[in-house]
Simulated scan of single mutants.
Amino acid sequence: MAAQQSYFVPGYGISRAVIQSDIRYYCGSDAIVRQYTHQGRDGFLVTTSGPPLTEAQIQDLKNASKEYEERQAIANGFVNQPIPVGQHRRR
């Protein structure tokens, strides 16, 4: 059995829901991912005995994340529209 390795993936542009559901596809069935902060940057700690993510795979995760976030926004009604929150008139 291969040794487990852990590495940091910057989280900018990657949805947690997407990376958690897709990580086993890219890195093998034993791969796990969790939110992690490294040197002040938010991202993910990937632990696997399989191959590490390539730049192309990370870009695929970003593209899938963008599509996921757009679907979520439409489903929840948050499509670049102002939402009134406790409007007060100035005197």
Results as ranks from 00 to 15, higher is better:
Met1Thr: 11
Ala3His: 03
Ala3Arg: 11
Ala3Gly: 00
Gln5Asn: 10
Gln5Val: 13
Gln5Trp: 00
Ser6Phe: 01
Tyr7Gln: 08
Tyr7Phe: 15
Phe8Val: 07
Phe8Met: 07
Val9Ser: 01
Val9Leu: 08
Pro10Lys: 11
Gly11Gln: 06
Gly11Asp: 07
Tyr12Arg: 13
Tyr12Thr: 06
Gly13Arg: 06
Gly13Phe: 15
Gly13His: 11
Ile14Ala: 03
Arg16Asn: 10
Arg16Thr: 12
Arg16Glu: 08
Ala17His: 04
Ala17Ser: 12
Ile19Thr: 09
Ile19Trp: 07
Ile19His: 06
Gln20Asn: 14
Gln20Leu: 08
Ser21Met: 11
Ser21Gln: 14
Asp22Gln: 15
Asp22Met: 14
Ile23Lys: 14
Ile23Val: 15
Arg24Thr: 14
Arg24Tyr: 09
Tyr25Ile: 04
Tyr25Cys: 04
Tyr26Ile: 04
Tyr26Lys: 06
Cys27Asn: 10
Gly28Asp: 03
Gly28Trp: 15
Gly28Phe: 15
Gly28Ala: 09
Gly28Lys: 07
Gly28Asn: 03
Ser29Pro: 00
Ser29Ile: 01
Ser29Cys: 01
Asp30Phe: 12
Ala31Tyr: 05
Ala31His: 01
Ala31Lys: 01
Ile32Ser: 11
Arg34Cys: 05
Arg34Phe: 12
Tyr36Gln: 04
Tyr36Ala: 05
Tyr36Phe: 15
Thr37Phe: 09
Thr37Cys: 05
His38Ala: 02
His38Trp: 07
Gln39Tyr: 03
Gly40Leu: 13
Gly40Pro: 02
Arg41Ala: 07
Asp42Gln: 13
Asp42Lys: 15
Gly43Met: 02
Gly43Tyr: 04
Phe44Cys: 09
Leu45Arg: 05
Val46Ser: 01
Val46Trp: 01
Val46Gly: 01
Thr47Tyr: 02
Thr47Ser: 08
Thr47Val: 14
Thr48Met: 04
Thr48Gly: 03
Ser49Gln: 10
Gly50Trp: 08
Gly50Lys: 02
Pro51Gly: 02
Pro51Ile: 07
Pro52His: 08
Pro52Arg: 02
Leu53Ala: 02
Leu53Phe: 09
Leu53Asn: 02
Thr54Trp: 14
Glu55Arg: 11
Glu55Lys: 12
Ala56Tyr: 04
Gln57Arg: 04
Gln59Leu: 08
Leu61Asn: 02
Lys62His: 09
Asn63Gly: 00
Asn63Arg: 09
Asn63Leu: 13
Asn63Met: 09
Ala64Pro: 00
Ala64Gly: 00
Ser65Leu: 12
Lys66Ile: 10
Lys66Arg: 15
Lys66Glu: 11
Glu67Asn: 12
Glu67Val: 12
Tyr68Ala: 02
Tyr68Phe: 15
Glu70Ile: 15
Arg71Glu: 10
Ala73Leu: 01
Ala73His: 08
Ile74Arg: 15
Ile74His: 15
Ala75Lys: 12
Ala75Arg: 14
Ala75Ser: 09
Phe78Cys: 00
Val79Pro: 00
Asn80Gly: 01
Asn80Ile: 07
Asn80Thr: 04
Asn80His: 09
Gln81Thr: 04
Pro82Thr: 09
Ile83Met: 04
Pro84Gly: 13
Val85Asn: 03
Gly86Lys: 13
Gly86Glu: 10
Gly86Ile: 01
Gln87Cys: 05
Gln87Trp: 07
His88Ala: 06
Arg89Leu: 15
Arg89His: 08
Arg90Ser: 13
Arg90Tyr: 11
Arg90Thr: 13
Arg90Ala: 14
Arg91Glu: 14
Arg91Gln: 14
Arg91Val: 08
Arg91Asp: 13
